[in-house]
Amino acid sequence: MSASNITRVAGRGCALRGNDIDTDRIIPARFLRCVSFDGLGEHAFEDDREQAKGDHPLDDERNRGAAILVVDHNFGSGSSREHAPQALTRRGFKAFVGGSFAEIFAGNCVALGLPCVTLDDDDRSQLMDSLELDRNQEVVVDLEARTVTSRSGRMTCGVADGARQQLLGGSWDATAVLLEAGEAIEATAAKLPYVSGYAP
């Protein structure tokens, strides 16, 4: 098993405004009644879309095929459900650009090879405005250079060092990396008194 190196993601961008968009909104809990992630894509943001009566960015024909979702602050807060990034990636999103991300969501994204990068507030609102004016432009998230490039220019983005390393180095599929430790795992366990026994 080997993961590919992810250095840059390019594609059309879709702006989705609003802070604190939680995982219950990204994929409502009733769709978690499943034993496989297949088919989750169509239910992404289902209740929000229903309430927006077609006026949701994900239902906008012009956003069809977008690969980069641009969001505001604290995106993906709430539950640890990997169903959230799984649903979004099944809908075609390959990277997230935002103000900030909830930690478990960002961690789940790394495990799926999906970069989450941050822009400061001015840059982000400029990018969102520009995306809403021109949906056909290409957005490039470059992890190597730490930039997001679009018609509104080349912006410096933030990305957690550990996540960047894992994506660039192709080690984001953690199982293979963790297995490399081999017997050191059992050796660490044996030193823990609750594994080996407390009594001398």
């Binding site: 478990i104 789940n108 799926l112």
Partner: peptide, 15 residues
């Protein structure tokens, strides 16, 4: 998340 559940099942470890 689920991928990490897989990691723990397979290695009893987390990164």
């Amino acid at each position: 998340g689920t991928s990490q559940v897989r990691d723990v099942l397979a290695t009893q470890c987390l990164a």
